[in-house]
Design a protein around this nucleic acid. Sequence first.
DNA 1: GCAATGTGGTTAAACGTTTCACCTTTATAG
DNA 2: CTATAAAGGTGAAACGTTTAACCACATTGC
Lengths: 342, 342
Amino acid sequence: MKKYTIKDVANKAGVSIATVSNVINAKGRVSTQTIARVRKVIEELQYYPNLAARNLKDKKTHLIAVLVPLTDQSNIHDNPFYLELLSGIEKGARQSDLHVLLIGLKEGDNLSFIHERNLDGIIVVGVHEHSLLYENITQLHVPCVFMDSYLNQCNYDQVNIDDQLGGYLATKHLISLGHRHIVLFGGERKNNSVYHSRWLGYRKALNEARIQYREKYAIESQVTMEAAYQCAQHCIATDREITAVCVGSDVAAMGFVKGLHDVGLHVPEHISVIGFDDLFFAHYMVPTLTTIYQNITEKGTKAVELLFEQIYEERFRPAKKVFVPIQLKIGQSTREISKMEK
Amino acid sequence: MKKYTIKDVANKAGVSIATVSNVINAKGRVSTQTIARVRKVIEELQYYPNLAARNLKDKKTHLIAVLVPLTDQSNIHDNPFYLELLSGIEKGARQSDLHVLLIGLKEGDNLSFIHERNLDGIIVVGVHEHSLLYENITQLHVPCVFMDSYLNQCNYDQVNIDDQLGGYLATKHLISLGHRHIVLFGGERKNNSVYHSRWLGYRKALNEARIQYREKYAIESQVTMEAAYQCAQHCIATDREITAVCVGSDVAAMGFVKGLHDVGLHVPEHISVIGFDDLFFAHYMVPTLTTIYQNITEKGTKAVELLFEQIYEERFRPAKKVFVPIQLKIGQSTREISKMEK
DNA sequence: GCAATGTGGTTAAACGTTTCACCTTTATAG
DNA sequence: CTATAAAGGTGAAACGTTTAACCACATTGC
């Protein structure tokens, strides 16, 4: 099963390799008969161009990478959010004739592969402005799109949701149900993060309703199932004034519901819970989850789209910041305070 | 930000490019002083070898692909199983200095990229022996590992779990709790699939307990949340003899529990449910799920390991079939029949 | 004192493409 | 009938590596 080269094709078709190349790339001037003949030979030999050789000439590799930070606390694999994102990116890439490299990155990891492999561009998920990783990436000078990374004055393309709006919508929904003692369970608010924005939205909603903001209600934590589970049992269950919680992700919301359940508190009879992301299981939880929907797949395809523009279009354009729309989805996990059990 | 080549390094260090190449690859004979000098220049120029050029010579690309079939019913992104698998593969790849290409494949999709990119090998997830995809892959003559693909007499490496044992363990557990009317909710049993094996295990357990096998209790369906939800409501709820169900995945089990719940049946008070996979949320469901645990991450790393052997080791070795151990994990979703509510 | 051996290094071919400059033949214009 | 253009195609350099063959010199053994 020898691997044929353009030379073999040229020989068999009785033309020069330049002509074969022209046929393949639909460039130059070749008669229709010759084209047909060459095509036939290509078919017969099952010839495929060697991309390595091609890349050597025209630079473009049609290869992009998704960089996902790996931390001890949050491995990729316990948040289906990433899966949906990857799925969207892969889909977008397929449409743009790109291939996707999946790279997990620990802080301090070497990024040299980006140059070595001549990647056309990268998509970076969830880095902080002041992280080492961010520093390293900015020195790379490669087309790049950031996702879920709040970067203040950064001239890279970004795809995000309006997290502030998300925090606001969630909180407002709870307020509209009559809740006034509302906990925000989110991640670190420093570094201008996603969770900082949500917190701003939370405060805004409280403010509009003239509800006093309470520091102890705005919890900074890892947004994981286990952390949420613990928090539900220790922080919430011991303070019976609290009637509602905004949780930073559906995954954590699930942990929260379970944590409450295990100390005898039920959702939504005793406490209302609202999640974030609208992951695949939100509609199948008992109770179904009220949550902030975002189209994660679209987020992924959009990122690829932006990257594609950077790679193949005009010499330069200013950085774009795209916001994917979000939406409140009401499920069974939130309830009017008047209909709750004491 | 010019990209330096080996030539630039050679010039600046005052040696030939062959010598630089030797330094980089620790081959040939170079004095320690020269090595030091070249290294220094490489450092100064921030030189990185161009892999495209390198691949042109020595073939190996250190690039593998994960091929995941995309069907209308089962998109990658609604089964976290894939995420954990990808995570494991990525981890294994990192340890073996490989990069992973993520490819979603629709039946009939072109596989030419495997040759074009000179992939070192591929990992294929969940294909059937008689599918077009399988046919195409076998004609590829590329190192290959199949996962969750039951292939009878196939001389490729495979990583699986013992699905028959899985079906057996699950069923036996239910039997040991006193259940005798046990439904198996699985996927298509033709084509020697994963679900066929589980079904065999199910039958074996019934047999040992001298329970009559009933065709209508062995349901072939898409193993999705929604299908399970529907089944719970229509098939199970209408036949009150049934007291327990083996579900083909944790995801489907969740749909099942929800479906039952929505018609007023509770798990495990009215029906026992056992899942499969032990996904991240199994311990956080209400009730926590009894399930068959498999170490999915390990499955992924193992697959990479096998692929690595094929690529870099001995000229040839017979195909290996690896089984990753599984284990029954008892949660709250199964209960002794004597303690159930009528 | 000379062959053999070892050490440190160079030259040039090869990998499989793309592309630019150039060549030949035929058609077209004046 | 010649000058020009168009059509169809070719040759060879270039992309950035690796590597086999080779060379020059120093050391060693006898």
